[in-house]
């Protein structure tokens, strides 16, 4: 049986500085998951992924990551790996955590 589709966000790393980026509703790449577009339709998610794969001049390694709608702030990643990508490593407070 095919796996049921789960709401997700589209994420990658920035080509130049390697930082984690997310696709925003306006098609730009944002650094904050709460500003990301939450895909609730599988077809749209896959189409956006295919489009992102062609953007090799801006990003590296795009993929879809499960996300929850979150509160009023915006989507939140679900898997521990994506939580760490969103917040930064747990052994140091590296800017990203300091800012949030």
């Amino acid at each position: 049986m095919a796996r049921a589709f789960r709401p997700c966000i589209l994420t990658a790393n920035d080509l130049i500085d390697g930082e984690v980026v997310y696709l925003a509703p306006d098609g730009a790449w944002t650094r904050r998951p709460v500003d990301a577009r939450l895909f609730e339709d599988e077809g749209e998610a896959n189409r956006s992924l295919a489009a992102a794969e062609a953007q090799e001049d801006a990003i590296v390694g795009p993929y879809l990551a499960a996300a929850a709608p979150g509160g009023h702030l915006g989507p939140e990643p679900v898997h521990i790996r994506e939580v760490l990508r969103a917040t930064g490593p747990s052994n140091y407070c590296h800017g990203k955590q300091a800012g949030s």
Partner: peptide, 15 residues
């Protein structure tokens, strides 16, 4: 493969 041969990975948060 060329960046890897020069020790450059892309990890979770950065290169």
């Amino acid at each position: 493969p060329l960046r890897l041969m020069n020790g450059l990975y892309l990890q979770l948060h950065a290169y």
